[in-house]
């Protein structure tokens, strides 16, 4: 009797775990299936576009490149020249 009770509880535990896994899998797949909000082109994507298409794209109203302090390279760029900023 005790063994049977243990077995039933074990089965319930396995059932609950596999249900959670299934729900997670379905949730993940649905999240993949719906693209959600549109996101802007990356630079790599822009470079692959013909120039005619670039002329059609709009800039965001609050657009401004991130400013880098004078003389400070941002990642790969090198600074050439001295300290005499224009």
């Amino acid at each position: 009797m005790t063994t049977r009770t243990h077995r039933t509880e074990n089965c319930r535990g396995v059932d609950a775990r596999s249900r959670r896994k299934d729900l997670l899998a379905v949730g993940f797949a649905l999240a993949l299936a719906f693209p959600g909000a549109a996101h802007p082109y990356t630079l790599v994507q822009l470079l692959a576009l013909p120039i005619e298409r670039l002329l059609e794209l709009k800039i965001t109203s609050a657009s401004a490149g991130q400013l880098v302090p004078r003389g400070l390279p941002a990642r790969a760029g090198q600074v050439i020249g001295g300290d005499h900023a224009p």
């Binding site: 549109a38 802007p40 082109y41 630079l43 470079l47 670039l54 794209l57 657009s63 401004a64």
Partner: peptide, 19 residues
Amino acid sequence: FSPRALSDELPEYRLKAAF
């Protein structure tokens, strides 16, 4: 099979870099 939506609006200097 569903293409990810790309917005036609993007930061000014990203677009200028492409130009």
